[in-house]
Amino acid sequence: MKRKILLGLAAAIGFQFLTLIGMYLSAQMPLWTGEAIRLEAIPVDPRSLFRGNYARLEYEISHLDIALFPAGKRLREGEVIYVALTADRRGIYRFAGVSLKKPQQGRFLRGRIAGSGFRGAISSYRVRYGIEAYFAPKEKALGLETDLRKGGIAEVMVSKSGRARLKHVSANPAK
């Protein structure tokens, strides 16, 4: 085998290894460096053929009214938005505002406009923050579905750039 091909194959193995490490670090970073916030969550229970059982979560900030955005500007799918949050007296973080530019201060989440799949007039945008899937074994996922029927509390770690990682989901004691 030619030396060049050998080096190329070795580099390809290195590339795969580094990609996996990069993914691990990028996933882990908000958990290491972020600050914890709590959000109210509503569970939905799907199953992915490839990824297994998970509870799909929705939040108060998952659907944002179109009137919150500058008039006449239709946002594109995948467009990045920033949602500012403030804590209520129970320590649950709630929607405080939305902008297309990164806020200079305060707590905020970075989200992306998700596709609605339909053209025409819409009243709200669906937004995803990367904290919508909570993976669990089948029994645990079914248990979560029962526990969270009346709503849950998601513990989320948020980095300074607004990227969020879901840490834990539990039942909402107030409901």
């Binding site: 795969q16 996996l20 996933a27 919508e132 993976f135």
Partner: peptide
């Protein structure tokens, strides 16, 4: 086979860290 394991590793990382963004 190694490429399948590589894909499985990606899926596992997404699963462990509940990555559902994209």
């Amino acid at each position: 086979l190694g490429n399948f394991f590589y894909g499985a590793s990606i899926i596992l990382i997404a699963q462990i860290y509940h990555l559902g963004e994209h």
